Amino acid sequence: MRKTARYSALAAAGLLALSSLTACANDAASTTADSGSNGGGGKGEHVKIMVGGLDKVIYMPAMLTQRLGYFNDEGLNVELLSEPAGVQAETALVSGQVQGAVGFYDHTLDLQTKGKAVESVVQFSHAPGEVEIVSNKRADDITSPKDFKGKKLGVTGLGSSTDFLTKYLAVKNGVKVSEFAPVAVGAGPTFVSALQKGAIDGGMTTDPTVATVLQKGLGKVLIDMRTPSGSQEALGGPYPSSSLYMQTDWVNGHKETVQKLANAFVKTLKWMSTHSASEIAAKMPADYSQGNKTLYATAIQSTLPMFTKDGVMPADGPETVEKVLKAFNPNIKNAKVDLSKTYTTEFVKKAVTG
């Protein structure tokens, strides 16, 4: 498998984990980025965006925008890179290695408490798109988050949004954060393998991993947050998750570029809302389906309800995220967060009306 020079540089910097999964995602990103009409053909302004798992359906707008040629249409040469977890995409952004990150909006609140000004500029979703899976072997022992005590629960990475949401569900249901063990297992094959081998009793993941687990008969769905109604039931409101977020100083200094990115992403979200899961799947890199196009289309279909059609932050969404984080995150619980500085609708509203 080919590894890019950038992959090697990031690995040397110690920013990569679960390298086998990441290498596959990076290869897919690099191949597409160099593929002429469907990717950044080397022309236009160069922008690097780190994604918390390019092949995850929750972050699909990133690669889909590339494949549809919308970045090129805006005169941008966007280079998509991949990390197995959103927390690592956040690290790459804050360290200045990339100009943007595609990950969960909740990182903007967490970073503000650490003195970092980061904001969501395009909000892809109004639900987490996450699913709590329970191993079939432990299905009788874990029937709700109340049973998390003493269990090993998989998350993409420690400090990731799956980690945040797992902790919230535990605390909300009377289980202390110290009473269960979060295990960083990534997504895709590494998550499936951990479940299969009993390294975890369950875990939080997204499609297409969810579809694979169910198809293999390895687990069952405990909590489904792929829809707004699922988010409302589990978290008490809309939960804006996947987004394009960037450092505020960079946004303010490159408004024309950010507007072009917003134009491209909003165009993609609109396209997604008018096309079937099969049509969307056909636009994605062939290897994302892992040899099963029907299963991949099913995974997309299950997750489509989480996406916005216009990239605008949902009303009351930031408040829900703050409530969730305050339940278990001592940094945020004891801090005053200025939610108005964690996102902007300036660019997407111009894209929608223009």
Results as ranks from 00 to 15, higher is better:
3 K>R: 14
8 S>R: 14
8 S>T: 13
10 L>R: 11
14 G>M: 12
14 G>L: 10
15 L>Q: 07
21 L>I: 15
24 C>H: 12
25 A>V: 06
26 N>S: 13
28 A>E: 08
32 T>S: 13
37 S>N: 04
42 G>N: 09
44 G>Q: 01
45 E>W: 00
52 G>T: 01
56 K>Y: 05
56 K>I: 04
61 P>D: 02
61 P>L: 03
63 M>N: 11
65 T>P: 06
66 Q>S: 15
70 Y>T: 09
72 N>I: 04
75 G>F: 09
76 L>H: 09
80 L>T: 10
82 S>F: 10
87 V>S: 14
90 E>H: 12
92 A>P: 02
102 V>E: 04
104 F>K: 05
105 Y>M: 02
110 D>W: 12
116 K>R: 11
120 S>M: 02
121 V>N: 09
122 V>L: 03
126 H>F: 11
127 A>V: 07
131 V>R: 07
132 E>N: 09
144 S>Q: 06
144 S>G: 10
145 P>D: 01
151 K>M: 14
155 V>E: 06
161 S>R: 08
162 T>W: 05
162 T>H: 00
164 F>P: 04
169 L>V: 01
173 N>K: 03
173 N>C: 03
182 P>K: 06
182 P>D: 06
184 A>W: 07
185 V>L: 11
190 T>Q: 14
199 A>W: 05
200 I>G: 08
203 G>A: 04
204 M>P: 07
204 M>L: 14
209 T>Y: 03
214 L>K: 13
218 L>G: 00
224 D>M: 10
224 D>V: 07
226 R>L: 01
228 P>I: 02
235 L>E: 10
237 G>F: 01
239 Y>M: 07
240 P>S: 06
243 S>G: 09
246 M>P: 04
249 D>L: 02
253 G>H: 07
254 H>W: 01
254 H>A: 10
258 V>L: 12
259 Q>N: 04
261 L>A: 00
268 T>F: 01
271 W>G: 08
274 T>H: 11
276 S>G: 09
278 S>V: 05
282 A>I: 00
283 K>I: 00
291 G>C: 01
291 G>F: 04
293 K>D: 15
293 K>S: 15
294 T>G: 09
295 L>T: 05
297 A>N: 05
301 Q>N: 15
302 S>D: 13
306 M>K: 10
306 M>D: 02
311 G>N: 03
316 D>G: 11
332 I>K: 03
338 D>A: 14
338 D>F: 02
345 T>V: 11
347 F>P: 06
350 K>G: 12
